[in-house]
């Protein structure tokens, strides 16, 4: 298998796992503690290989989520393409940041992602008004260092570049 094709397979597999993790069933009380795995994976790959994963990938993932979630078509697509764009734009700085600073940047990106979604939901109906709506972003920041290490090892092991 060519390195190109192998890289594509790894990217596809990591996104597929992230999507499944996003829709894993669980009790309602656990909802605020589930981070947006797809957004985290997207941010990592946009930072590591911005010439392969960027706005187009983010948009496609968003459409997939919109269909699986039953949400308005284009809602998550817009949010994911925006965070992919910002990450690709800032990838040289993000790569240089110490791990904690990177995690804070990820928190900002995840919050932008959620903000866009809540704006759109507010525009078409009633958006969730609870403070718990924002906890997935904070959980995302907390798990980021582990996501980073795991995906970096995956990238090195299979030489995705």
């Amino acid at each position: 298998m060519s390195p190109q094709a192998r890289g594509r397979l790894i990217l596809l597999a990591s996104f597929a796992i992230a999507i499944v993790m996003n829709i894993l069933p669980g009790p309602a009380w656990a909802e605020p503690f589930v981070p947006d795995w797809v957004a985290l994976t997207l941010i990592y790959w946009c930072m590591a290989v911005p010439h392969r994963v960027s706005v187009g990938t983010g948009w496609t993932l968003g459409i997939i989520l919109d269909v699986l979630y039953g949400s308005l078509l284009g809602q998550h697509a817009l949010a994911k393409s925006v965070i992919a764009f910002i990450t690709v734009r800032l990838h040289p700085q993000l790569r240089m940041f110490p791990r904690w600073q990177q995690a804070v940047s990820v928190l900002v990106l995840l919050a932008i992602n959620q903000l866009l979604v809540v704006w759109i939901r507010g525009a078409i109906g009633h958006a969730p008004g609870t403070i718990a709506y924002w906890t997935p972003s904070i959980v995302g920041m907390v798990v980021w260092p582990w996501i980073f290490v795991v995906l970096r090892d995956v990238r090195r092991r299979w030489q995705v570049s």
Partner: peptide, 10 residues
Amino acid sequence: EVSTEPFSRR
């Protein structure tokens, strides 16, 4: 048995 959009009820 799947969950849908966070903080929606579907």
